[in-house]
Design a protein around this nucleic acid. Structure first.
Lengths: 130, 130
DNA sequence: TATCAGTTTAGAACGATTCTAATGTATTGA
DNA sequence: TCAATACATTAGAATCGTTCTAAACTGATA
């Protein structure tokens, strides 16, 4: 896809074969949460022979350019989120799955931050039972 | 301390020397957030010769008995929280520090959870800038 | 106080991630 | 166009937090 190459160049990333494949999958319009492992599995199914090292490099490169958000949620693995807007999540431990919450939520009753500290952002994680 | 031995027994934990030392430190009335590493450092300073394996075992034993909460927060390490009540946190990435938020907070505008899922608990993490 | 289940320990193993350094490739500019 | 080079990819080694193993030890019990 021409668009993806252009998109990568716009973000100071050389459109190599591997990056194009990965970006095409990640930025297909449907927001995703991936770990290196889940992405690797997807790519294996697509028969794209991309090494794990490259998958890690690429996810981190995309992250550094702001194309992905990093989530570390009650879990052992780092999730990369293609939705880089500020938003919240449902999390099902049982399914090991994250679901975006895209509506605006308000947190009330927040105490003052400690002296000399400023609030940067508020993250709400809604744990699901089943 | 007699109390601590009793406390451990009440929780079906044999009051071994190592567990008594660790419990005495953790449950001294001041809530704490520790990782295996920070606890190990504290114990080294106290000249308690307790192996890392035992520290991991003990933290996990305490966790299994509900004496500690596990937090995994935007970070590489597992934090154990001596405050097992439902509460929220400030988190300073710069300082790698967690601070309890013990006041009641309300989250409004929460969407319905996915079909057949029930909300278990809501965790708010307030990221600090500096 | 002997027995035994539970505990501690050093060090090995593990698993996710990063590093290394050799090979390959996109970009550039002559 | 093509050579030079800066950047990417890769397999496998290294790393680091954590868990496992199996041998030695200890608290509980009778």
């Amino acid at each position: 896809m021409k668009d993806i190459k252009h998109f990568l160049r716009q973000n100071s990333l050389r459109p190599t074969k591997q990056r194009v494949i990965i970006a095409n999958y990640l930025f297909d319009g449907v927001n995703k949460h991936v770990t290196a492992e889940t992405l690797s599995n997807k790519l294996l199914k697509m028969k794209a022979g991309i090494s794990l090292a490259t998958i890690y490099n690429t996810l981190n490169d995309f992250y550094e350019k702001g194309l992905l958000k990093k989530l570390m949620i009650n879990s052992e693995r780092i999730y990369f989120d293609t939705n880089t807007e500020h938003h919240h999540h449902f999390y099902s431990k049982k399914d090991q799955k994250l679901i975006d919450i895209n509506v605006d939520m308000k947190v009330s009753g927040l105490p003052k931050p400690p002296k000399n500290k400023k609030i940067n952002k508020i993250e709400v994680l809604v744990h699901l039972d089943n």
